[in-house]
């Protein structure tokens, strides 16, 4: 009972995150590609509750920021007039949860090198990145489970062929194939098509590792007493694989899943470099993260780590969720194996 309540709580957190991302247009104060060129590399906007007169406001307000002359991108607050945050305000492009008057800016997580609001980009970018990573994880695990399961269960020539092809997949310089794929595509690819392409490519490359892991477990699992017993009762091999052998790989699969999702999100940055990722100005966590691998951003613009923080937070909810599901599953599973 306690278990279920916990899963429920985690699922709620999970839902909240995805809701924010799904309804990015509502939660984000700005369009993700809107450039505020006078405010490039601005720090997160400070929310104030106490004004210059020492008066406390329940509704937070912000001061407009003005560029400081000199080296780099420096700004200071202009405390002469404050602008309150408006909730649920209607703008030309729909209703926004948070907004301020156009004289001031509301950059909750600061801005990037074009003066684009990182918070808004994070919400919009999460859509593509998380979806692509999840689909890719699903795809590579599906192929991995099928390949590893069949190889391990049936053994012999089937095993040899599948495992050698997994080695082939691991060894080939994919980068050239990706460049070739990019070359055969039209120059401009719509974000939705990019999404499908991304997940297909990542999924197709990522199955070899899980396949090896699962094959190892299956090799052992199919010789368990209860599997042999079922075989003795005349169950077909396919049935055995599906019903008795693969459930035992659940631990490996969940462990793989939670490690693959964040990795795949980051992998998109590499694909962007080859021209296969989400191109500017459309945001994705991958291309936002790739900015955070440069000396200048890491050393000067710490707030550009926001996608990293978001990815960690989301991955943690996945991890806890997967763990809880796995434990619940293991309970059912072990009950079954006794039966």
């Amino acid at each position: 009972m306690l278990m279920h309540r916990k899963i429920f709580a985690i699922a709620m957190a999970f839902a909240a995150v995805h809701c924010g991302i799904l309804f990015a247009g509502f939660f984000a104060p700005y369009m993700p590609s809107a450039q505020h060129r006078e405010h490039a590399y601005a720090r997160p906007t400070k929310l104030h509750f106490v004004d210059a007169q020492g008066q406390v406001h329940i509704r937070p307000f912000v001061y407009p920021s003005v560029p400081v002359e000199g080296e780099g991108f420096q700004y200071r607050e202009d405390p002469s007039s404050g602008y309150p945050i408006r909730f649920l305000s209607r703008k030309s492009d729909g209703i926004h949860l948070l907004a301020v008057d156009s004289q001031a800016d509301l950059f909750l997580f600061g801005t990037d090198g074009y003066g684009r609001d990182i918070f808004s980009r994070l919400l919009f970018g999460g859509r593509i990145s998380l979806l692509a990573a999840m689909v890719a994880t699903l795809l590579s695990l599906l192929i991995g489970v099928a390949a590893g399961g069949i190889a391990g269960h049936f053994g012999g020539a089937v095993d040899a062929v599948i495992m050698r092809s997994s080695e082939l997949v691991l060894a080939l310089p994919w980068i050239y194939l990706l460049l070739a794929i990019r070359g055969s595509l039209p120059l401009h690819v719509e974000p939705t098509r990019t999404l499908i392409l991304l997940s297909a490519v990542i999924g197709a490359m990522g199955w070899a590792r899980p396949a090896r892991l699962i094959r190892g477990v299956v090799l052992s699992a199919r010789e368990r007493p209860f599997v042999s017993a079922a075989r003795g009762f005349g169950a077909s091999e396919w049935y055995l694989l599906r019903r008795h052998v693969l459930p035992q790989t659940l631990g490996v699969i969940t462990a793989q899943a939670v490690t693959l999702i964040p990795q795949f999100v980051a992998a998109e940055a590499t694909l962007s470099f080859l021209g296969l990722g989400i191109g500017e100005p459309v945001p994705s966590w991958g291309n936002m993260l790739s900015a955070f691998q440069q000396f200048q951003t890491v050393s000067s613009y710490w707030w550009m780590a926001a996608p990293l923080v978001a990815l960690v937070a989301v991955s943690l909810t996945y991890f806890v969720l997967a763990d809880a599901l796995h434990q619940a599953g293991a309970r059912i599973n072990s009950g079954q194996s006794y039966a």
Binding site: S33, Q35, R37, Y114, L179, R182, G183, L187, H188, S272, F273, L274, G275, G279, E280, P281
Partner: peptide, 22 residues
């Protein structure tokens, strides 16, 4: 930046970064 500037003329411009030799 150019793509954003040209949007003000009503052009729809897409930026496609590719690998150098591509």
């Amino acid at each position: 930046l150019i793509a954003d500037d040209l949007a003000q003329l009503g052009m729809s411009v897409h930026v496609v970064p590719l690998e150098f030799r591509a």
